[in-house]
Design a protein around this nucleic acid. Sequence first.
DNA 1: GTCTATATGAAGATAGAC
DNA 2: GTCTATCTTCATATAGAC
Lengths: 218, 218
Amino acid sequence: MNKPTGIRERMLQVRHEAIIDSVNRLLAERGYDMMTVDEVAADVGIAKASLYKHFASKEALAAAAMQRVQERALVQMDALEAEADASALARLRGIVRWALQTQNDGQMPSLPSQNSALRHALIADKGYMALLMQVSDRLGEWIVQAQRDGEIDASLPPELVLFTLFARACDPVLPALKAAGHPPEQIIDWVLRTCFSGLAGSAGERSAGRKKTRNAKE
Amino acid sequence: MNKPTGIRERMLQVRHEAIIDSVNRLLAERGYDMMTVDEVAADVGIAKASLYKHFASKEALAAAAMQRVQERALVQMDALEAEADASALARLRGIVRWALQTQNDGQMPSLPSQNSALRHALIADKGYMALLMQVSDRLGEWIVQAQRDGEIDASLPPELVLFTLFARACDPVLPALKAAGHPPEQIIDWVLRTCFSGLAGSAGERSAGRKKTRNAKE
DNA sequence: GTCTATATGAAGATAGAC
DNA sequence: GTCTATCTTCATATAGAC
Protein backbone atom coordinates (compact mmCIF):
# COMPACT_ATOMS: atom_id res chain seq x y z
CA MET A 1 0.00 0.00 0.00
CA ASN A 2 2.82 2.48 0.76
CA LYS A 3 5.51 2.37 -1.87
CA PRO A 4 8.63 4.02 -0.42
CA THR A 5 8.96 6.68 -3.11
CA GLY A 6 10.70 9.98 -3.64
CA ILE A 7 10.42 13.10 -1.56
CA ARG A 8 7.92 14.68 -3.92
CA GLU A 9 5.36 11.93 -3.63
CA ARG A 10 6.09 11.75 0.05
CA MET A 11 4.90 15.34 0.45
CA LEU A 12 1.76 14.49 -1.44
CA GLN A 13 1.06 11.65 0.91
CA VAL A 14 1.50 13.97 3.85
CA ARG A 15 -0.98 16.45 2.39
CA HIS A 16 -3.34 13.60 1.67
CA GLU A 17 -3.19 12.62 5.32
CA ALA A 18 -3.69 16.21 6.42
CA ILE A 19 -6.82 16.42 4.31
CA ILE A 20 -8.22 13.21 5.75
CA ASP A 21 -7.42 14.48 9.23
CA SER A 22 -9.51 17.57 8.64
CA VAL A 23 -12.35 15.67 7.03
CA ASN A 24 -12.38 13.15 9.82
CA ARG A 25 -12.62 15.82 12.49
CA LEU A 26 -15.22 17.89 10.65
CA LEU A 27 -17.23 14.76 9.96
CA ALA A 28 -17.30 13.97 13.67
CA GLU A 29 -18.00 17.57 14.59
CA ARG A 30 -20.61 18.58 12.04
CA GLY A 31 -21.77 15.43 10.29
CA TYR A 32 -21.69 14.77 6.55
CA ASP A 33 -24.64 16.95 5.58
CA MET A 34 -23.56 19.99 7.58
CA MET A 35 -19.91 19.75 6.59
CA THR A 36 -19.09 21.84 3.52
CA VAL A 37 -16.17 21.44 1.14
CA ASP A 38 -15.32 25.08 1.75
CA GLU A 39 -14.88 24.31 5.42
CA VAL A 40 -12.58 21.44 4.64
CA ALA A 41 -10.47 23.56 2.32
CA ALA A 42 -10.26 26.33 4.90
CA ASP A 43 -9.33 23.87 7.61
CA VAL A 44 -6.60 22.25 5.55
CA GLY A 45 -5.41 25.66 4.44
CA ILE A 46 -5.65 25.22 0.68
CA ALA A 47 -8.03 26.34 -2.03
CA LYS A 48 -11.14 24.36 -2.74
CA ALA A 49 -10.05 23.67 -6.30
CA SER A 50 -6.84 22.13 -4.99
CA LEU A 51 -8.88 19.83 -2.81
CA TYR A 52 -10.69 18.56 -5.88
CA LYS A 53 -7.31 17.58 -7.39
CA HIS A 54 -6.89 15.15 -4.51
CA PHE A 55 -10.46 13.88 -4.25
CA ALA A 56 -13.08 13.77 -6.96
CA SER A 57 -16.05 14.71 -4.80
CA LYS A 58 -17.32 15.42 -1.32
CA GLU A 59 -18.44 11.81 -1.16
CA ALA A 60 -14.96 10.56 -2.02
CA LEU A 61 -13.59 12.83 0.67
CA ALA A 62 -15.88 11.35 3.29
CA ALA A 63 -15.34 7.81 2.07
CA ALA A 64 -11.59 8.19 2.50
CA ALA A 65 -12.04 9.36 6.07
CA MET A 66 -14.48 6.58 6.89
CA GLN A 67 -12.05 4.11 5.38
CA ARG A 68 -9.26 5.29 7.62
CA VAL A 69 -11.47 4.87 10.68
CA GLN A 70 -11.94 1.23 9.73
CA GLU A 71 -8.21 0.82 9.22
CA ARG A 72 -7.56 2.21 12.68
CA ALA A 73 -10.17 -0.08 14.14
CA LEU A 74 -8.34 -3.02 12.59
CA VAL A 75 -5.05 -1.85 14.10
CA GLN A 76 -6.77 -1.60 17.46
CA MET A 77 -8.17 -5.09 17.04
CA ASP A 78 -4.68 -6.41 16.33
CA ALA A 79 -3.50 -4.87 19.57
CA LEU A 80 -6.37 -6.39 21.50
CA GLU A 81 -5.71 -9.82 20.05
CA ALA A 82 -2.06 -9.50 21.02
CA GLU A 83 -3.02 -9.35 24.67
CA ALA A 84 -2.55 -12.98 25.63
CA ASP A 85 -5.00 -13.22 28.49
CA ALA A 86 -7.86 -11.29 26.98
CA SER A 87 -11.18 -13.12 26.75
CA ALA A 88 -13.42 -12.57 23.75
CA LEU A 89 -15.67 -10.42 25.90
CA ALA A 90 -12.71 -8.36 27.09
CA ARG A 91 -11.74 -7.76 23.47
CA LEU A 92 -15.24 -6.64 22.57
CA ARG A 93 -15.28 -4.30 25.54
CA GLY A 94 -11.87 -3.07 24.51
CA ILE A 95 -12.87 -2.15 20.98
CA VAL A 96 -16.02 -0.39 22.14
CA ARG A 97 -13.98 1.51 24.71
CA TRP A 98 -11.56 2.55 22.01
CA ALA A 99 -14.44 3.74 19.83
CA LEU A 100 -15.92 5.77 22.67
CA GLN A 101 -12.57 7.33 23.48
CA THR A 102 -12.13 8.18 19.82
CA GLN A 103 -15.56 9.77 19.83
CA ASN A 104 -14.63 11.69 22.95
CA ASP A 105 -11.57 13.02 21.15
CA GLY A 106 -13.83 14.35 18.41
CA GLN A 107 -12.49 11.90 15.87
CA MET A 108 -15.31 9.41 15.44
CA PRO A 109 -17.68 10.27 12.59
CA SER A 110 -21.10 8.87 13.36
CA LEU A 111 -22.02 5.99 11.12
CA PRO A 112 -24.43 7.14 8.39
CA SER A 113 -28.01 6.21 9.18
CA GLN A 114 -30.57 5.10 6.65
CA ASN A 115 -31.26 8.58 5.36
CA SER A 116 -27.86 10.20 5.08
CA ALA A 117 -26.64 11.05 1.61
CA LEU A 118 -23.34 9.47 2.57
CA ARG A 119 -24.75 5.99 2.91
CA HIS A 120 -25.32 5.27 -0.76
CA ALA A 121 -21.89 6.56 -1.61
CA LEU A 122 -20.29 4.27 0.93
CA ILE A 123 -22.01 1.07 -0.09
CA ALA A 124 -20.91 1.81 -3.64
CA ASP A 125 -17.30 2.22 -2.49
CA LYS A 126 -15.45 -1.09 -2.91
CA GLY A 127 -12.54 -0.14 -0.68
CA TYR A 128 -14.75 0.98 2.18
CA MET A 129 -17.00 -2.05 1.95
CA ALA A 130 -14.04 -4.42 1.92
CA LEU A 131 -12.71 -2.88 5.12
CA LEU A 132 -16.12 -2.86 6.72
CA MET A 133 -16.49 -6.56 5.94
CA GLN A 134 -13.09 -7.24 7.43
CA VAL A 135 -13.99 -5.44 10.64
CA SER A 136 -17.39 -7.09 10.79
CA ASP A 137 -15.99 -10.56 10.20
CA ARG A 138 -13.37 -10.27 12.90
CA LEU A 139 -15.86 -8.82 15.36
CA GLY A 140 -18.21 -11.60 14.38
CA GLU A 141 -15.63 -14.18 15.37
CA TRP A 142 -15.12 -12.52 18.73
CA ILE A 143 -18.85 -12.45 19.29
CA VAL A 144 -19.35 -16.13 18.50
CA GLN A 145 -16.40 -17.00 20.72
CA ALA A 146 -17.83 -14.93 23.55
CA GLN A 147 -21.13 -16.70 23.14
CA ARG A 148 -19.43 -20.11 23.28
CA ASP A 149 -17.72 -18.98 26.49
CA GLY A 150 -21.04 -17.91 27.96
CA GLU A 151 -19.81 -14.32 28.16
CA ILE A 152 -22.39 -13.06 25.66
CA ASP A 153 -25.98 -14.25 25.70
CA ALA A 154 -25.94 -17.16 23.24
CA SER A 155 -29.63 -16.80 22.44
CA LEU A 156 -28.99 -13.45 20.74
CA PRO A 157 -28.14 -13.54 17.03
CA PRO A 158 -24.53 -12.43 16.45
CA GLU A 159 -25.86 -9.92 13.93
CA LEU A 160 -27.79 -8.14 16.66
CA VAL A 161 -24.74 -8.02 18.88
CA LEU A 162 -22.64 -6.67 16.02
CA PHE A 163 -25.04 -3.86 15.15
CA THR A 164 -25.46 -3.04 18.82
CA LEU A 165 -21.71 -2.61 19.20
CA PHE A 166 -21.57 -0.45 16.06
CA ALA A 167 -24.31 1.72 17.51
CA ARG A 168 -22.45 2.07 20.81
CA ALA A 169 -19.37 3.24 18.94
CA CYS A 170 -21.11 6.54 18.19
CA ASP A 171 -23.47 6.55 21.14
CA PRO A 172 -25.22 9.91 21.56
CA VAL A 173 -25.25 9.32 25.31
CA LEU A 174 -21.59 10.31 25.53
CA PRO A 175 -21.93 13.87 24.17
CA ALA A 176 -25.23 14.31 26.03
CA LEU A 177 -23.70 13.50 29.40
CA LYS A 178 -20.56 15.47 28.57
CA ALA A 179 -22.78 18.50 28.06
CA ALA A 180 -24.28 17.76 31.47
CA GLY A 181 -20.83 18.07 33.00
CA HIS A 182 -19.81 14.49 33.74
CA PRO A 183 -16.18 13.46 33.23
CA PRO A 184 -15.69 11.50 29.97
CA GLU A 185 -13.91 8.52 31.52
CA GLN A 186 -16.78 8.07 33.94
CA ILE A 187 -19.32 8.24 31.13
CA ILE A 188 -17.44 5.71 29.04
CA ASP A 189 -17.45 3.29 31.96
CA TRP A 190 -21.19 3.76 32.38
CA VAL A 191 -21.90 3.24 28.70
CA LEU A 192 -19.81 0.07 28.61
CA ARG A 193 -21.55 -1.21 31.69
CA THR A 194 -25.05 -0.59 30.39
CA CYS A 195 -24.09 -1.97 27.00
CA PHE A 196 -23.00 -5.34 28.37
CA SER A 197 -24.94 -5.60 31.62
CA GLY A 198 -27.99 -3.47 30.85
CA LEU A 199 -29.84 -0.91 32.93
CA ALA A 200 -31.54 -3.46 35.14
CA GLY A 201 -30.71 -3.79 38.82
CA SER A 202 -30.59 -6.92 40.92
CA ALA A 203 -34.35 -7.40 41.03
CA GLY A 204 -35.09 -6.83 37.37
CA GLU A 205 -32.27 -8.48 35.51
CA ARG A 206 -33.48 -12.08 35.51
CA SER A 207 -37.05 -11.24 34.59
CA ALA A 208 -36.49 -8.71 31.85
CA GLY A 209 -37.44 -11.13 29.11
CA ARG A 210 -40.80 -12.03 30.60
CA LYS A 211 -44.12 -10.24 30.64
CA LYS A 212 -44.92 -10.54 34.32
CA THR A 213 -42.35 -9.04 36.65
CA ARG A 214 -44.35 -8.90 39.84
CA ASN A 215 -42.38 -11.63 41.55
CA ALA A 216 -39.14 -9.85 40.84
CA LYS A 217 -38.81 -8.51 44.36
CA GLU A 218 -37.82 -11.53 46.37
CA MET B 1 -55.89 24.67 23.07
CA ASN B 2 -58.80 23.60 20.86
CA LYS B 3 -61.51 26.16 20.84
CA PRO B 4 -64.64 24.54 19.38
CA THR B 5 -65.02 26.93 16.49
CA GLY B 6 -66.78 27.09 13.15
CA ILE B 7 -66.46 24.77 10.22
CA ARG B 8 -63.98 27.00 8.43
CA GLU B 9 -61.39 26.98 11.18
CA ARG B 10 -62.09 23.31 11.65
CA MET B 11 -60.94 22.64 8.10
CA LEU B 12 -57.81 24.63 8.75
CA GLN B 13 -57.04 22.48 11.74
CA VAL B 14 -57.47 19.37 9.64
CA ARG B 15 -55.07 20.68 7.04
CA HIS B 16 -52.67 21.63 9.78
CA GLU B 17 -52.75 18.05 11.00
CA ALA B 18 -52.30 16.72 7.48
CA ILE B 19 -49.19 18.84 7.08
CA ILE B 20 -47.72 17.63 10.35
CA ASP B 21 -48.49 14.07 9.34
CA SER B 22 -46.48 14.46 6.18
CA VAL B 23 -43.63 16.25 7.91
CA ASN B 24 -43.50 13.62 10.61
CA ARG B 25 -43.28 10.79 8.13
CA LEU B 26 -40.75 12.50 5.90
CA LEU B 27 -38.69 13.44 8.92
CA ALA B 28 -38.55 9.79 9.95
CA GLU B 29 -37.90 8.63 6.42
CA ARG B 30 -35.33 11.12 5.19
CA GLY B 31 -34.15 13.11 8.19
CA TYR B 32 -34.26 16.86 8.61
CA ASP B 33 -31.39 17.73 6.32
CA MET B 34 -32.48 15.52 3.43
CA MET B 35 -36.15 16.48 3.67
CA THR B 36 -37.06 19.39 1.40
CA VAL B 37 -40.00 21.74 1.68
CA ASP B 38 -40.90 20.87 -1.90
CA GLU B 39 -41.29 17.25 -0.86
CA VAL B 40 -43.56 18.22 1.99
CA ALA B 41 -45.72 20.37 -0.25
CA ALA B 42 -45.98 17.62 -2.84
CA ASP B 43 -46.82 15.06 -0.17
CA VAL B 44 -49.54 17.23 1.35
CA GLY B 45 -50.79 18.10 -2.11
CA ILE B 46 -50.61 21.88 -1.92
CA ALA B 47 -48.27 24.54 -3.29
CA LYS B 48 -45.12 25.38 -1.41
CA ALA B 49 -46.21 28.98 -0.93
CA SER B 50 -49.38 27.75 0.77
CA LEU B 51 -47.27 25.74 3.15
CA TYR B 52 -45.49 28.89 4.20
CA LYS B 53 -48.84 30.44 5.13
CA HIS B 54 -49.20 27.71 7.76
CA PHE B 55 -45.62 27.56 8.99
CA ALA B 56 -43.05 30.31 8.88
CA SER B 57 -40.07 28.15 8.02
CA LYS B 58 -38.77 24.64 7.53
CA GLU B 59 -37.56 24.73 11.10
CA ALA B 60 -41.04 25.62 12.37
CA LEU B 61 -42.41 22.78 10.29
CA ALA B 62 -40.08 20.29 11.91
CA ALA B 63 -40.56 21.73 15.37
CA ALA B 64 -44.32 21.24 15.09
CA ALA B 65 -43.83 17.60 14.15
CA MET B 66 -41.35 17.00 16.94
CA GLN B 67 -43.74 18.64 19.35
CA ARG B 68 -46.52 16.29 18.37
CA VAL B 69 -44.28 13.30 18.96
CA GLN B 70 -43.76 14.49 22.52
CA GLU B 71 -47.50 14.97 22.94
CA ARG B 72 -48.13 11.43 21.79
CA ALA B 73 -45.46 10.15 24.13
CA LEU B 74 -47.27 11.87 27.00
CA VAL B 75 -50.55 10.25 25.98
CA GLN B 76 -48.79 6.90 25.92
CA MET B 77 -47.36 7.56 29.35
CA ASP B 78 -50.83 8.30 30.68
CA ALA B 79 -52.00 4.97 29.37
CA LEU B 80 -49.08 3.17 30.96
CA GLU B 81 -49.72 4.83 34.31
CA ALA B 82 -53.35 3.80 34.10
CA GLU B 83 -52.34 0.14 34.15
CA ALA B 84 -52.77 -0.63 37.83
CA ASP B 85 -50.28 -3.44 38.20
CA ALA B 86 -47.45 -1.97 36.16
CA SER B 87 -44.14 -1.58 37.96
CA ALA B 88 -41.94 1.41 37.20
CA LEU B 89 -39.69 -0.85 35.16
CA ALA B 90 -42.65 -2.21 33.21
CA ARG B 91 -43.68 1.35 32.41
CA LEU B 92 -40.20 2.22 31.18
CA ARG B 93 -40.14 -0.89 29.05
CA GLY B 94 -43.58 0.02 27.78
CA ILE B 95 -42.64 3.49 26.63
CA VAL B 96 -39.50 2.27 24.89
CA ARG B 97 -41.52 -0.46 23.21
CA TRP B 98 -44.01 2.15 22.02
CA ALA B 99 -41.17 4.28 20.64
CA LEU B 100 -39.68 1.32 18.79
CA GLN B 101 -43.03 0.39 17.33
CA THR B 102 -43.53 3.97 16.25
CA GLN B 103 -40.12 3.90 14.62
CA ASN B 104 -41.04 0.64 12.92
CA ASP B 105 -44.15 2.31 11.52
CA GLY B 106 -41.94 4.99 9.97
CA GLN B 107 -43.27 7.68 12.27
CA MET B 108 -40.44 8.31 14.69
CA PRO B 109 -38.12 11.10 13.59
CA SER B 110 -34.66 10.46 14.98
CA LEU B 111 -33.75 12.90 17.70
CA PRO B 112 -31.42 15.58 16.34
CA SER B 113 -27.82 14.88 17.27
CA GLN B 114 -25.28 17.50 18.21
CA ASN B 115 -24.66 18.58 14.66
CA SER B 116 -28.07 18.72 13.03
CA ALA B 117 -29.35 22.11 11.96
CA LEU B 118 -32.62 21.23 13.64
CA ARG B 119 -31.15 21.12 17.12
CA HIS B 120 -30.60 24.84 17.58
CA ALA B 121 -34.07 25.58 16.30
CA LEU B 122 -35.60 23.16 18.78
CA ILE B 123 -33.82 24.42 21.88
CA ALA B 124 -34.99 27.89 20.94
CA ASP B 125 -38.59 26.69 20.65
CA LYS B 126 -40.41 27.30 23.94
CA GLY B 127 -43.29 24.97 23.19
CA TYR B 128 -41.07 22.07 22.23
CA MET B 129 -38.78 22.54 25.20
CA ALA B 130 -41.70 22.67 27.61
CA LEU B 131 -43.01 19.37 26.30
CA LEU B 132 -39.57 17.81 26.33
CA MET B 133 -39.17 18.84 29.97
CA GLN B 134 -42.54 17.36 30.80
CA VAL B 135 -41.62 14.05 29.20
CA SER B 136 -38.19 14.04 30.82
CA ASP B 137 -39.55 14.84 34.26
CA ARG B 138 -42.13 12.09 34.18
CA LEU B 139 -39.65 9.57 32.86
CA GLY B 140 -37.26 10.75 35.55
CA GLU B 141 -39.81 9.91 38.22
CA TRP B 142 -40.31 6.44 36.79
CA ILE B 143 -36.56 5.93 36.70
CA VAL B 144 -36.03 6.96 40.30
CA GLN B 145 -38.93 4.76 41.37
CA ALA B 146 -37.51 1.80 39.48
CA GLN B 147 -34.19 2.39 41.18
CA ARG B 148 -35.84 2.45 44.61
CA ASP B 149 -37.52 -0.85 43.72
CA GLY B 150 -34.20 -2.35 42.69
CA GLU B 151 -35.46 -2.79 39.14
CA ILE B 152 -32.94 -0.35 37.68
CA ASP B 153 -29.32 -0.27 38.82
CA ALA B 154 -29.38 2.37 41.56
CA SER B 155 -25.70 3.19 41.11
CA LEU B 156 -26.40 4.67 37.67
CA PRO B 157 -27.28 8.37 37.54
CA PRO B 158 -30.91 8.83 36.43
CA GLU B 159 -29.65 11.19 33.75
CA LEU B 160 -27.72 8.37 32.12
CA VAL B 161 -30.74 6.12 32.18
CA LEU B 162 -32.89 8.85 30.66
CA PHE B 163 -30.52 9.56 27.78
CA THR B 164 -30.07 5.86 27.20
CA LEU B 165 -33.82 5.41 26.85
CA PHE B 166 -34.03 8.40 24.47
CA ALA B 167 -31.29 6.84 22.38
CA ARG B 168 -33.11 3.50 22.25
CA ALA B 169 -36.24 5.26 21.01
CA CYS B 170 -34.55 5.80 17.64
CA ASP B 171 -32.15 2.89 17.82
CA PRO B 172 -30.42 2.26 14.47
CA VAL B 173 -30.34 -1.45 15.30
CA LEU B 174 -34.02 -1.76 14.38
CA PRO B 175 -33.73 -0.65 10.73
CA ALA B 176 -30.43 -2.48 10.38
CA LEU B 177 -31.91 -5.81 11.43
CA LYS B 178 -35.06 -5.17 9.45
CA ALA B 179 -32.89 -4.82 6.36
CA ALA B 180 -31.35 -8.16 7.31
CA GLY B 181 -34.79 -9.73 7.16
CA HIS B 182 -35.76 -10.26 10.79
CA PRO B 183 -39.38 -9.70 11.84
CA PRO B 184 -39.89 -6.32 13.55
CA GLU B 185 -41.60 -7.69 16.67
CA GLN B 186 -38.72 -10.05 17.25
CA ILE B 187 -36.18 -7.25 16.83
CA ILE B 188 -38.06 -5.01 19.25
CA ASP B 189 -37.99 -7.76 21.87
CA TRP B 190 -34.27 -8.19 21.38
CA VAL B 191 -33.58 -4.47 21.62
CA LEU B 192 -35.63 -4.19 24.80
CA ARG B 193 -33.84 -7.15 26.27
CA THR B 194 -30.36 -5.86 25.52
CA CYS B 195 -31.36 -2.40 26.69
CA PHE B 196 -32.37 -3.56 30.15
CA SER B 197 -30.40 -6.77 30.58
CA GLY B 198 -27.39 -6.10 28.38
CA LEU B 199 -25.53 -8.31 25.95
CA ALA B 200 -23.78 -10.34 28.62
CA GLY B 201 -24.55 -13.99 29.20
CA SER B 202 -24.55 -15.90 32.46
CA ALA B 203 -20.79 -15.91 32.85
CA GLY B 204 -20.13 -12.28 32.05
CA GLU B 205 -22.92 -10.37 33.68
CA ARG B 206 -21.60 -10.08 37.21
CA SER B 207 -18.06 -9.14 36.24
CA ALA B 208 -18.74 -6.55 33.57
CA GLY B 209 -17.77 -3.62 35.77
CA ARG B 210 -14.38 -4.99 36.74
CA LYS B 211 -11.06 -5.02 34.97
CA LYS B 212 -10.19 -8.65 35.48
CA THR B 213 -12.71 -11.11 34.12
CA ARG B 214 -10.61 -14.23 34.18
CA ASN B 215 -12.55 -15.83 37.00
CA ALA B 216 -15.79 -15.29 35.15
CA LYS B 217 -15.95 -18.84 33.91
CA GLU B 218 -16.96 -20.79 36.97
C1' DG C 1 -55.23 30.76 1.65
C1' DT C 2 -54.25 29.13 -2.73
C1' DC C 3 -51.74 29.38 -6.71
C1' DT C 4 -47.55 30.46 -10.46
C1' DA C 5 -43.44 32.58 -10.93
C1' DT C 6 -39.34 34.44 -9.07
C1' DA C 7 -35.83 36.12 -5.87
C1' DT C 8 -31.89 34.86 -3.00
C1' DG C 9 -28.31 32.38 -1.30
C1' DA C 10 -25.51 28.48 -0.29
C1' DA C 11 -22.73 24.69 -1.75
C1' DG C 12 -20.74 21.24 -5.04
C1' DA C 13 -17.91 21.39 -8.80
C1' DT C 14 -14.96 23.47 -12.75
C1' DA C 15 -12.16 26.80 -16.00
C1' DG C 16 -8.04 28.39 -16.98
C1' DA C 17 -3.85 31.06 -15.70
C1' DC C 18 0.52 30.18 -13.36
C1' DG D 1 -0.99 21.23 -7.89
C1' DT D 2 -2.14 25.60 -6.52
C1' DC D 3 -4.61 29.54 -7.06
C1' DT D 4 -8.82 33.13 -8.23
C1' DA D 5 -12.97 33.54 -10.34
C1' DT D 6 -16.96 31.44 -12.10
C1' DC D 7 -20.60 28.12 -13.26
C1' DT D 8 -24.57 25.38 -11.99
C1' DT D 9 -27.82 23.39 -9.29
C1' DC D 10 -31.05 23.26 -5.94
C1' DA D 11 -33.49 24.50 -1.73
C1' DT D 12 -35.41 28.09 1.27
C1' DA D 13 -38.24 31.67 1.07
C1' DT D 14 -41.31 35.53 -1.11
C1' DA D 15 -44.17 38.49 -4.59
C1' DG D 16 -48.25 39.33 -6.24
C1' DA D 17 -52.47 37.88 -8.74
C1' DC D 18 -56.87 35.55 -7.65
